[in-house]
Structure formats: structure tokens, C-alpha cells
């Protein structure tokens, strides 16, 4: 993003050296940025607006921009919100923590204790993401049935852990390889154990990466709908299933569903906002490679 205005200003400056059109162009680019941001933001704005409309207003053509906001939709949505919220929190954080417990040592070993097979192991982990989810749902469903994991929170946590594990290993592997190897050599000379290398050095040095990865893992698990729809019914149904339950073939449902969606994205926005600084640091840390 930051490189865009610079390269943009250089080209016309060479072509027309007399006048400095930098400001005009800069202004245009700023306006364009605002426009693009607004375009990306608009669906969310529209969803929030729809959540405060009556069903008829939410569906009206031409669309309504000025209206008296109502809270009825939220009242309906709140009736079923909290059990789903608890499940989403449990599944998203449970799977993230589990994925880190398993993935961090793996990333550490793959980064600093490389073997000829390290590359293949990494590629293999990524390959579990190649297959579309729908391609594995039947065997998964049968496994879950036989292990009595259908519609249980532990089952959902396990599912999301397998989904997030490759992400954790890959991202943490890339952060850890950024750490100068010489630091570890020096520590070894001083007699540090593998445990001390891991807990005392690798972990603290990759904290920004951990928070960025954790946020991504939480968001992925939070937004996941396909496995949730298929592997849970009522006891463990998370928020993605909760949103779906508002759809109906008879009558209007957009306003209620928008209210449910607003309630669903709200916690993620809060997490993101809290983790914002860490997130930017963590993401740019990997980007300057």
C-alpha cells in the first residue's frame, strides 16, 4: 500500500517536468483510496443498517437509506444467541490453543533442527489444505459418528485444530526462520538446552508472529460454516449455524438475519481491534522477508 503513491508520482513527474502535479495526483489517489475502502466497507454498513430496519424496509426497492431504527430484530436474534456464542468462543479459542500447543514445537523443529525431509513435511502439511472440504465430509462424518463426536464441542475443537494446524506451522515456521541463527549458536555455546532455546528465545522473539497467527486462526475458526453445519446439530452449534437458522422459504428474513450477522461479527471486530498493533507488527514482520 505504501509503495503505491511513490511509484505513481514518479512516472508523471518524469513525463511533465514543468509543473508539479504531485498534489493533484496525490489527492486523486487519496480519494480513490477512500472510495475503495468505502466499497469494501459498504456491505458491512449495509448489513448493520438492515439489522435496524423492518423486514419490509430491508427488502424494499429502491433501497431505503433514511428510516427509523428499530431493535426488534436484535430481540429475536438474542433469543438464540448466547449458546451459539459460547460454542463459537470455545471452538475458536480451544482449537487455536490446541493448534499452537502442537504447531509451535513443530515449527521450531522445522526451522532450527532441519533434516533433509523438513521441506517435504511442510509441503505435506500444506497439502492437507488442497482438498475441498466437501471432498472429505463423508469419511469425516462417519469417523465422528463412530467416535461419538457429532454435535460435541470437543469434536468441533478437534476439527478446527486440524484446519488451523497447517496455518500455525507454516506461519510460525516463517517467523522463526527470520530469527538469526547465530543467537541460538551463541546460546548453545553457553550451554542452553533445547527447552531453553524454545521457551527462552524462540517463543519470546516470535511473539508478534504468534499474536498475528493466533488472530488469523481464531478468525478462520470463527467464520467456518461448512464443517459446523455438517458436524453439529444443536448442542455444539456455533454462530455460523445460528445465522443460517434465520433463512426461511416463506416470508422475509433479511433484517433478522442481518441482526444475527451483526452479533456474530461484533466479537471478531473487538478481538481485531484489541490485537491491531500486534497484528500489523506481526504481519509486516513476515512481509519484509
Amino acid at each position: 500500500m505504501t509503495t503505491l503513491p511513490q511509484s505513481g508520482t514518479q512516472v508523471p513527474a518524469n513525463n511533465t517536468p514543468k509543473k508539479p502535479p504531485v498534489n493533484v495526483l496525490g489527492g486523486l489517489l487519496t480519494a480513490l483510496t477512500y472510495l475503495l475502502t468505502f466499497l469494501f466497507f459498504f456491505p458491512i454498513l449495509w448489513m448493520v443498517m438492515a439489522a435496524f430496519k423492518t423486514e419490509a424496509q430491508a427488502f424494499q426497492t429502491p433501497p431505503v437509506f433514511v428510516f427509523t431504527p428499530i431493535l426488534d430484530n436484535f430481540r429475536v436474534a438474542f433469543e438464540r444467541y448466547f449458546p451459539a456464542l459460547l460454542n463459537s468462543l470455545g471452538a475458536a479459542f480451544g482449537s487455536t490453543i490446541l493448534a499452537f500447543i502442537l504447531g509451535l514445537p513443530a515449527a521450531f523443529a522445522l526451522a532450527f533442527y532441519t533434516t533433509p525431509r523438513s521441506r517435504s513435511v511442510l509441503t505435506w502439511m500444506l497439502s492437507t489444505k488442497f482438498m475441498p472440504a466437501v471432498g472429505v465430509i463423508v469419511p469425516l462424518y462417519l469417523l465422528f459418528t463412530n467416535l461419538h463426536l457429532l454435535d460435541t464441542l470437543p469434536g468441533l475443537i478437534l476439527m478446527y485444530t486440524t484446519m488451523n494446524l497447517p496455518l500455525v506451522v507454516w506461519m510460525m515456521h516463517s517467523y522463526m526462520t527470520e530469527i538469526p541463527y547465530a543467537i541460538f549458536e551463541a546460546a548453545r555455546v553457553d550451554g542452553a538446552s533445547v527447552w531453553r532455546e524454545f521457551f527462552g528465545m524462540a517463543l519470546p522473539l516470535s511473539l508478534p508472529g504468534i499474536s498475528a497467527t493466533a488472530l488469523l486462526a481464531v478468525i478462520f475458526a470463527w467464520n467456518e460454516a461448512f464443517f459446523a453445519l455438517n458436524l453439529t446439530t444443536s448442542d455444539a452449534a456455533p454462530l455460523s449455524v445460528f445465522i443460517g437458522s434465520f433463512k426461511t422459504g416463506e416470508g422475509l428474513f433479511w433484517a433478522q438475519m442481518s441482526a444475527a450477522a451483526v452479533l456474530t461479527v461484533f466479537p471478531v471486530i473487538v478481538f481485531g481491534w484489541i490485537a491491531q498493533r500486534q497484528l500489523v507488527r506481526g504481519l509486516s514482520f513476515g512481509a519484509v522477508k
Binding site: 453445519l229 446439530t233 444443536s234 448442542d235 452449534a237 449455524v241 443460517g244 437458522s245 433463512k247 426461511t248 422459504g249
Partner: peptide, 10 residues
């Protein structure tokens, strides 16, 4: 009684 509410196709 426990309820499971889903869109028709799902």
C-alpha cells in the same frame, strides 16, 4: 425437546 433449525437445502 431440542431444536435444530437450518435453511431448507442444508
Amino acid at each position: 425437546v431440542k431444536w435444530v433449525v437450518l435453511p431448507e437445502n442444508e
